[in-house]
Amino acid sequence: MTITVNPARERAAEIRPGVLRPDWSAATTPAVLQALAGRVTARSGLLDKWSHALEASEDIVWRTVLRLYAAKGRPPNVDEIAVATGIDGGRVGALLRKLQLRDLVGLDAGAETIWLAYPFTERATGHRVELDGHVLNALCAIDALGVAAMYGTDVTVESQCRSCGETIRVTTADVGQALRSVSHPEAVVWYDFAYTDNAASSCCPAIAFFCSDGHLQRWLGSQAGPRTGARLNMNEALEVGRAIFGPVLAAARQDDGSEDLP
């Protein structure tokens, strides 16, 4: 995986041949470009973890985990991953530990049990995604909004305003390329840039929905110290989610532009 410079002069990681993450082409507004640029700058340590390409077997296990997670409505176990990939269970465990070092999955301490595989987690976060008949916990607001583009199917997201607790409901259209409905027309998302060790424990807890700018400002004012991040309207937040998660399951591209089978 190489760190590349795209036409927007921003860095991206090539997660498999011809597939860059984030996908800067998803950004159509200055706010989204600035949010993605802020993410890259603040999380340089995360890009460092991606400075070397995943082995083919690591990539296969990563994508298999995510596909099985969605299909089953829970994280798959080692045996299920082994059956789906044809890779020996012992090797699967070793590959999962490597993926954890890249901050792609999270394993219970001393075990090979998956408790998170971005964008999903088994721990209650308040961000719920209805996907193909399952209700799954997303790590944060942006993760929840990115699910539709990642899986190529529309979803419903329910969360709470981080300030007042009121339920915010969002549905997508055009397989995650657009918003179909938002229960609170003035709703916004705070996209926090903090990053230490892993996203789940640093930035994700602060990446949240708010009913309005007023509620966001009230929450920011209640924090122990100033937070670094970006205020996004709902369309902008969806674009950030698409840019980050849209490439994750995309097939590798050949030099002639054709796609390999995933």
Rank of each mutant, 00 (worst) to 15 (best):
W190V: 05
R21E: 10
I87E: 04
L139E: 11
A148V: 02
E80P: 02
T121M: 11
A70L: 02
G18R: 05
R169Y: 04
A243V: 11
L20H: 15
V61W: 03
A35T: 14
T171R: 14
A237P: 01
D260L: 15
F120S: 04
A237F: 06
N235A: 15
L136T: 04
R11C: 01
R21A: 13
N6I: 07
P7L: 07
P205I: 10
V32D: 12
S57P: 00
V155R: 04
A70T: 02
V129M: 04
S181L: 08
A53G: 14
L131V: 01
S51G: 02
A178S: 15
A42M: 05
L216T: 11
L179P: 10
L66G: 07
S202D: 05
C161D: 12
E58W: 03
R16P: 00
W190Y: 14
A12T: 13
S258D: 05
E80G: 12
L96H: 06
D255L: 11
S202P: 02
W50H: 15
D256V: 03
L54C: 03
G176W: 09
A26C: 15
A37M: 05
N137V: 02
T153E: 02
A224N: 05
H52E: 15
G241Q: 09
F245C: 06
S159T: 13
R67E: 12
G90A: 10
A94K: 15
D79I: 05
R16K: 13
A12H: 11
I87C: 09
R162H: 12
P119M: 11
R123D: 12
D260I: 00
D79S: 14
R180V: 01
L66C: 06
G90T: 12
M234W: 13
G221P: 03
S51Q: 14
A237S: 08
V157C: 03
